[in-house]
Design a protein around this nucleic acid. Sequence first.
DNA 1: AAGACCATGTAACTCGTTACATGATTTG
DNA 2: CAAATCATGTAACGAGTTACATGGTCTT
Lengths: 191, 191
Amino acid sequence: MLKHGILGLISNSDKTGYEIMTVFRDSLSHFWSAQTSQIYRELQTLQKAGWISRKHVEQTGRPDKNVFSITPAGHEELIRWLREDNIPAELRNPFLLKTFFMGELPVEENIAFFKAFRDASVFPDEGRQVTASADLYAMAVDHPEKAVYWKLTIAFGMMYEKMQREWCDYCLQELEAFRQKQQENTEDIQQ
Amino acid sequence: MLKHGILGLISNSDKTGYEIMTVFRDSLSHFWSAQTSQIYRELQTLQKAGWISRKHVEQTGRPDKNVFSITPAGHEELIRWLREDNIPAELRNPFLLKTFFMGELPVEENIAFFKAFRDASVFPDEGRQVTASADLYAMAVDHPEKAVYWKLTIAFGMMYEKMQREWCDYCLQELEAFRQKQQENTEDIQQ
DNA sequence: AAGACCATGTAACTCGTTACATGATTTG
DNA sequence: CAAATCATGTAACGAGTTACATGGTCTT
């Protein structure tokens, strides 16, 4: 997956490892992440596969850099990957895994947990949404025909956040009801 | 993460590696997956850490099995993990990564792609939702106080699917509009 | 004067996937 | 009679994380 992500970024325009890192950090982080160490390693394998070519550029006043460009073979591979029919979904949600085992802790604690989670959103308000997508709009100047698709990924992020907040509210309702039921039971026993 | 998932399952009741595999496959797959090879490897490390203990049980008519139980130290570790404050979100969505680079393909092809994706839902109808959660309801008989939390994870799955379908519909709208705009442009040039 | 930015990577480790290997019993 | 279920793993590889290492320039 990461290989093809890097390939796609280089196909938009030539890039250094550092630039690829910043795009992952600033624009793709809500659906894919990558450490620099991993990026530089993958760049090596992509080059060995003949999908990208490297050009050493000397600089004054700042470190030299290696600029990578996509090769015809690399572009073919990118297209092949895009057409590949894998709709894997591959959900892997650590918060849900925790939720599944929360029965080990007292309800009050879990209620606090969900409240904290609900308030820790990536796009908490309209203002943030705009800045989060600012980088993409800047990139869109060079590739207006690709901007449509970038907009779609941002829309997903926003819809996901909204759904997550709604789910948290639902969970809080359920847990409050559960807590009340528990209290009533202990009162019954005490009578 | 997987270590603690396995620990949690064993804390619900003693289990063999095979049983753990079936729970991941049948009940947790919509938010976490695990191959058998990985499960058996993690069971070894969990045992070395002293968090679980192994008991060899001989059987007739079927292969012998190794039943794992959680130790007091293991239970402490499970609680510690649950209380740990990591709200990482850690989204990693291959479909969005593809979407980001779809500008390389013709719009018509991408429209077909989204239609296929929309129709390939995990919980496509009410009937399926019931069977998907049936296993959890069966497990709930032994642990009624934990069933609340299991129900929450199922609710997430359903809300996620719904959001995904809505997002697909939105994408299809946007792409249809984009296609029309493209067509109009080529007509202008031809005139 | 301190910290962020540009720019490169290596080493060690952990986690996840794919493929292979075995073999009896039960169900359709 | 074929396929699924029960039950165990190993080997090799690929992907992801953490920690470390360097050093000049630009901004606050």
